[in-house]
Write a protein that binds this DNA or RNA. Structure first.
Length: 635
RNA sequence: CGCGGGGUGGAGCAGUGGUAGCUCGUCAGGCUCAUAACCUGAAGGUCGUGCGUUCGAAUCGUACCCCCGCAACCA
């Protein structure tokens, strides 16, 4: 039976364009891991959607003179197109404005209420007197009590940088109407995290080895500090309603005095999207125009298989600003349901990806349009560059100069060149066809090649080698089982790690995994040189037979590469496979493409016959001057 | 003393007690199948600073300096 893997990707706010930083922070890492699991034939469900409610949306709507719904529709549509373009392979990408989401949110709310984790409380909030409405902090401005600067936000004075507490702002007024604002008591529901603390402690301790160290430490820091109850309702119209009718059936002690204007706070509701989207996907027959939808043959349509089965694994991907919600709040919500829910096992958080050393900033026009860059340079180049710069441990940086260098010196020079030199060689010397019944796993390689491979750790190819022999590289060894033996044992430890996360590896470390792909390509280039295959073909029939075997070896490496690069560069993978005359990757459940490369039992079928399709360049070289001009255009 | 992360050759990063590594760049050489690509070799680091623990510290402790993130509805 296929393992169930649920990949929950943080829900992007639909108040602006998705830039390269979002891609690097969580969108692309999630997609890479999802594709990896699909290669292994796992039953993968990747869900996410647009986070549609809350103040950021209404702020953007005001700015554009639109209704919140219109802003949501506009950006949701744009995001859908962008994600399709980047090949982000969601099973369901939906939004939080759906009926299903609302239903599930209500269900969760009521369950937590009944279980005693939600309680009432009174807090103070800004209230516009003339307009008769509560205002979010963002909509209040006044004079800073410290530096007397006017027109400052209620939370921070931009002039002197001080943080302001509620009520400190002098002469606060509504940004919308100019109406005078005061602080007023307001009753809300709160989630009592204190009651969940010991369970959260257990949860963290159980996952110490599964999360990156800094992620765990940060979550641990929050928990040690002590979690306080947190408001889960607001006086804010652009939000999901409370299930008032249902609440009214409850005991009086659970009811607010006045439900008017009370809505569910976005932080509480958005994460429930993982659950609601799973359930929606299970019930859906097909996608709609405002979703990305995909279902493979044989995938389970019982949502509990992902959420309540012990052999399902849940991942969550997010940017660092979302850490506390995913590492503590959301697990807390699930615990409070007390209904056998699986908790996220891998909370995968990345830091931010900066742009030329500075934070991406829409307001300062310091941003790269994800769509434009992909159109110009190709999705896979961008995917590659982002993937190799993922801010897994510390902030990453996107620079145009580095982008060109990475593409030209790594992708083109190493991987692209390997493919091109191998395939054009086969074309010119063998008319694009190879066939060797003699191609067996026990072929003997040249001494030089041996030495090289031994040095580069490829010695794991060979059986019975001693440390001394390894150092000298002298032994005339036999090329043992297959290339994949080596793959399985050493190089692919990384790739294996990034999902299994065994041995306390605190991953996933996608950068390392990508490094492995490139390292494998580099090794093949060394092999090409060491075997001097271009000389072999000049040495009569024997030489040509040898060359054929060498090339078949290389072809098999290319096949491996096309598969292991797939999670990172799916388009390129398909392109390479087509050139090799192979089928492109199928990642249906149970297809187990991974096993065709990575298989401990070495049952893999080697390619012994080859008929090349038309050969083309895998990547085009970038013109540095043209690309560097991009930088100036954003200044 | 709010919480947390980081400071390792020109750049970007691995490395958490035992001869300082990788990718890119630089320099020299080789090769010519290949997108002036590939391969080999070399130069280049007192691992932020001081003190301490230890036979031994980039790695542990401590003090300090610098950069950054979060704490706010910025991914």
């Amino acid at each position: 039976m296929s393992k169930k893997v649920l990949i929950g990707v943080a829900w992007p706010y639909v108040n602006g364009d998705i830039h390269v930083g979002h891609l690097g922070g969580y969108l692309l890492p999630a997609d890479i891991v999802a594709r990896f699991h699909r290669l292994k034939g796992d039953d993968v469900l990747m869900v996410s959607g647009s986070d549609c409610y809350g103040t950021p949306i209404t702020v953007e709507a005001d700015k554009k003179g639109l209704k919140p719904e219109e802003v949501v529709d506009m950006y949701h549509k744009k995001d859908l197109e962008l994600f399709k373009m980047y090949g982000l392979d969601y099973n369901l990408y939906t939004k939080t404005t759906t009926q299903k989401h609302k239903e599930v949110v209500h269900e969760v709310f009521l369950k937590l209420l009944d279980n005693g984790y939600i309680e009432k409380g009174v807090m103070q909030q800004y209230y516009a007197i003339d307009d008769n409405q509560f205002l979010p902090d963002r909509y209040v401005e006044g004079t800073c009590p410290y530096c007397n600067a006017g027109n400052q936000r209620s939370d921070q004075c931009e002039s002197c940088g001080r943080w302001l507490k509620d009520g400190e702002l002098i002469d606060p007024v509504s940004k919308l109407t100019g109406s005078k604002v005061t602080l007023k008591d307001t009753e809300h529901y709160f989630l009592n995290f204190e009651k969940l603390e010991s369970q959260l402690r257990e949860y963290l301790d159980a996952n110490k080895e599964n999360w990156k160290k800094w992620v765990w430490n940060e979550a641990n820091g929050w928990l040690k500090e002590g979690l306080q109850r947190r408001a889960i309702t607001r006086d804010m119209d652009w939000s999901i309603d409370l299930p008032i009718e249902e609440i009214k059936k409850r005991d009086e002690s659970k009811q607010l005095k006045d439900f008017a204007g009370k809505h569910i706070y976005v932080w509480f509701e958005a994460v429930i999207g993982y659950l609601s989207a799973t359930r929606a996907w299970c019930e859906m027959e097909e996608g709609t125009s405002d979703t990305i939808f995909k279902r493979d043959e044989g995938q389970s349509r019982n949502w509990e298989d992902w959420w309540k089965s012990s052999d399902s694994v849940i991942y969550n991907f997010m940017g660092q600003d979302n850490l506390v919600f995913h590492a503590l709040m959301w697990p807390g919500q699930l615990m409070g349901l007390d209904d056998g829910y699986q908790l996220p096992k891998f909370v995968v958080v990345n830091k931010f990806l900066n742009y030329e050393g500075k934070k991406f900033s829409k307001s300062r026009n310091w941003t790269i349009d994800s769509k434009v860059i992909a159109e110009k340079y190709g999705v896979d180049l961008v995917r590659y560059y982002i993937a190799r710069n993922l801010p897994e441990n510390k902030e990453g940086n996107f620079t145009w100069e580095d982008f060109v260098a990475s593409v030209n010196n790594e992708l083109v020079a190493n991987l692209g060149n390997l493919v091109n030199r191998t395939l054009t060689f086969i074309n010119s010397k063998f008319n694009g066809e190879l066939e060797s019944e003699n191609f067996k796993p026990d072929m003997t390689l040249s001494q030089t090649a041996l030495k090289l491979m031994i040095k580069t750790k490829a010695f794991l190819f060979f059986e019975g080698i001693t440390e001394k022999e390894r150092e000298s590289g002298e032994k005339d060894m036999v090329y043992n089982p297959e290339i994949n033996n080596w793959l399985g044992s050493e190089q692919f430890e990384y790739l294996n790690r990034f999902t299994e996360l065994q041995n306390g590896s605190n991953g996933p470390w996608l950068v390392n995994a990508l490094d492995t792909v490139m390292g494998y390509s580099r090794l093949a280039n060394q092999y090409f040189d060491a075997t001097k295959v271009w000389e072999r073909v000049k040495e009569g029939k024997d030489g040509k037979d040898q060359a054929q075997e060498i090339l078949l070896n290389l072809v098999n490496v290319l096949y491996d590469l096309s598969i292991i690069m797939y999670p990172f560069m799916p388009e390129t993978s398909g392109k390479l496979l087509r050139m090799l005359g192979r089928e492109t990757i199928k990642t249906e459940m149970g297809s187990d493409m991974w096993k065709s490369v990575f298989d401990e039992d070495c049952t893999r079928q080697l390619i012994t016959h080859l008929k090349l399709s038309e050969v083309e360049l895998l990547f085009d070289k970038l013109d540095p001057e043209k690309v560097l001009a991009e930088k100036d255009s954003t200044d």
